[in-house]
């Protein structure tokens, strides 16, 4: 198991970019369904989802937020992070087995608040289609 990375506020530069690859596993969808009981048919009923025009059962958008949470707390900025806000827009349906690259660009450093603002994008598959995008505010603790 990898330890969380540890970027300090001072180390972070505006314009710098960080990324991580995630895969939507069946277990993520089933766990989220079981724990939060979101059994909307588009997530759990293959036939219904296809009749509704999708390629199959659509993964919960919240799974992308879980990846984002992992990214902020474990990859960038890492252990000092406190997520203040995450405003996400979901652009494309995602399915079990999809591979997504999360790319984050440091849009703004707010020295007086110890906050970094990140523009984040989830890019899907080899064609890097924009699956979701958003803006995130992260406060960094001193330690």
């Amino acid at each position: 198991m990898r330890s969380p990375r540890d970027f300090s506020f001072q180390e972070i530069e505006e314009g710098s970019e960080y990324s991580e690859t995630y895969r939507i596993g069946d277990e993520a969808i089933s766990s989220l369904t079981d724990v939060f009981e979101d059994r909307s048919p588009v997530h759990v009923d293959e036939v219904y989802a296809r009749e509704a025009g999708f390629e199959g059962r659509v993964s919960h958008g919240a799974i992308l937020n879980c990846f984002l949470s992992h990214f902020i707390g474990m990859r960038f900025p890492g252990r000092r992070s406190m997520l203040l806000s995450a405003n996400m827009s979901y652009r494309l349906p995602c399915y079990a087995g999809d591979e997504l690259v999360l790319k984050a660009v440091v849009k703004q450093k707010v020295e007086s608040a110890g906050v970094v603002v990140l523009d984040v994008r989830f890019l899907k598959g080899d064609r890097e289609e924009l699956a979701a995008s958003g803006r995130v505010q992260v406060k960094l603790r001193d330690v």
Binding site: L84, V110, E111, S112, A113, V115
Partner: peptide, 22 residues
């Protein structure tokens, strides 16, 4: 927390930077 959002938005909107505690 809302104060932080306000400072973030003001810095972006006006293109200014504030010092700690200012």
């Amino acid at each position: 927390l809302l104060h932080i959002s306000l400072v973030v938005a003001v810095e972006e909107a006006f293109g200014v930077k504030f010092r700690v505690g200012e």
